[in-house]
Nucleic acid binder design. Structure first.
Length: 433
RNA sequence: UCCCCGGUAGCUCAAUGGUAGAGCAUUCGGCUGUUAACCGAAGGGUUGCUAGUUCGAAUCUAGCCCGGGGAGCCA
């Protein structure tokens, strides 16, 4: 008897199959039982008749939620069943029965955020959470495929680092061997600048850490970033690469994860439209847009969540804002020679208030300027000697950006908070489970 | 770090100064087409902690602890 996954059960109508999974829910109606099974790929309702299969009936009757089961039965097309297919159950083998004294804590009803996050290891079993994690996986695969197709080479960056990439206040310090200190990486960027000089076009993709005391729906202390970097590339190249990457990810999810998007009740029409080119405005224009909308922003201000939302509402695609004032960007950002008060930087703001999903730009290539900026930002020069070597030995113009995976996936899924789109979110004051 | 909101049964919530309640979950009983099934019954509480006001506090006051949303900062 073939073991089939629930997502493929429609190919076996009329046949007897085996499903291995868990009891998601059980409804009883006298001498008929309606168990709902899940196996990680989907859910299917079973029907068990006491008259026809007394053994299966007795095994399933009173069975507790999330007990693990191996079920055999005949697949029928059935309009009355959720999903359109139903399993007429002839055999039930209980692998492990959840004890009645300590039932599965997550019910098919509403729960509070605190409770669900404490139960995250079990919460991910519910259909909505499982769908979100599948969409995340598709987004990661699509992102890698796109970068590979553009001839970028994956060069992973270290997680232990000797010092800050960006601000020094948000570093996680860890005890390294023999009383040394190390820090969890905030960004792989400095390292991909090195591998770009070795391999030309590169990217890294992995977790990054920020000890920011931020409590918002857009923040995690541990999040994943995809960071391309290319030698001899300029700002324009990166804006084109960024919109290509985001479009490829969105379209791949729309194409390959339609069922999951339906499960999370996403309005897919808003995603189908996400194709290049994306609207681009200069920082100067963005300030004007804000002022037009009654926001008190003035030239030189950085944008917070409110400002990003106002600007993104003007467009139905992600919007690229470029050439921010140099003063508000990191020490490695290149300046615009036409207007030295501006940096050759850009951010991409997602629609619908999901905030900044990309930040990047062209890097400083002159040794003297990097040293000057390091001193200005009070960064420890001795920790950056290797980085300065990149400006000593064949320095070239180069550019790159960082894409925040969780914000991108949260936007694609339309979730309330980005904590839902990573299997085990790490947040301010929460590292369990 | 700052501002706002919250903490009552395993879960979601009600009870605004006078005997702590409901739905779900659990247990027992009923039901041959259920859709977070339904119907009947039972068990289940140190109202986050500490102090205070009061004849009397889940309720009012103060401090603390925990959580949520936001600001700053960022992807």
């Amino acid at each position: 008897m073939p073991v089939v996954s629930i997502e493929h059960v429609g190919q076996h109508v009329g046949a007897e199959v085996t499903i291995r999974g868990w009891l998601y829910n059980l409804r009883e109606s006298g001498k008929l039982l309606f168990p709902i099974f899940r196996d990680g790929t989907g859910i299917i309702q079973g029907v068990v008749s006491q008259k026809e299969h007394a053994g299966a009936f007795n095994a399933a009757k009173g069975l507790t939620q999330e007990s693990s089961v191996i079920v055999t039965g005949t697949v029928r097309a059935e309009a009355r069943a959720p999903g359109g297919f139903e399993l007429h159950v002839s055999g039930v083998e209980v692998v492990q029965r959840v004890p009645e004294s300590k039932p599965f804590p997550i019910q098919l009803k509403e729960h509070g955020v605190d409770f669900l996050l404490d139960q995250r290891h079990l919460w991910i079993r519910t259909p909505r959470q499982a769908a979100i994690l599948r969409i995340r996986a598709e987004a990661e695969r699509a992102a890698r495929n796109f970068m590979d197709s553009q001839d970028y080479t994956l060069t992973d960056a270290p997680i232990f680092t000797p010092a800050a990439c960006e601000g020094t206040t948000t570093l996680f310090e860890v005890d390294y061997i023999d009383d040394q200190k190390a820090y969890l990486t905030q960004s792989g960027q400095l390292y991909v600048e090195a591998t770009a000089a070795a391999l030309g076009k590169v990217y890294c993709f992995g977790p990054t850490f920020r000890a920011e005391k931020s409590k918002t729906r857009r923040h995690l202390t541990e999040f994943w970033m995809l960071e391309p970097e290319a030698a001899y590339a300029h700002l324009e190249d990166m804006m084109v690469l960024g919109e290509g990457l985001v479009s490829a990810v969105v379209q791949s999810v729309v194409k390959n994860r339609a069922r999951e998007l339906e499960m999370v009740k996403r309005d897919v029409s808003k995603l189908e439209n996400i194709k290049p080119p994306f609207p681009r405005i200069m920082y100067d224009e963005a300030i004007k847009v804000l002022q037009k909308n009654g926001n008190p922003a003035k030239w030189g201000d950085d944008f917070g969540g409110d400002e990003e939302t106002i600007i993104s509402k003007e467009f139905d695609k992600p919007v690229i804002i470029h050439r921010y004032p140099a003063a508000m960007k990191a020490f490695y950002m290149a300046t615009d020679e036409a207007r030295p008060e501006l940096s050759l930087s850009f951010d991409m703001i997602a629609p619908e208030g999901y905030g900044e999903i990309i930040g990047g730009g062209e890097r400083l290539s002159s040794y003297e300027t990097v040293v000057e900026r390091l001193r200005k930002d009070n960064l420890p020069e001795e920790s950056f000697q290797w980085y300065l070597d990149l400006r000593r030995y064949g320095s070239v113009p180069h550019a790159g950006f960082g894409l925040g995976l969780e914000r991108t996936v949260a936007w694609i899924c339309g979730t309330e908070h980005i904590r839902e789109v990573i299997p085990f979110p790490r947040m301010l004051y929460r590292v369990y489970p």
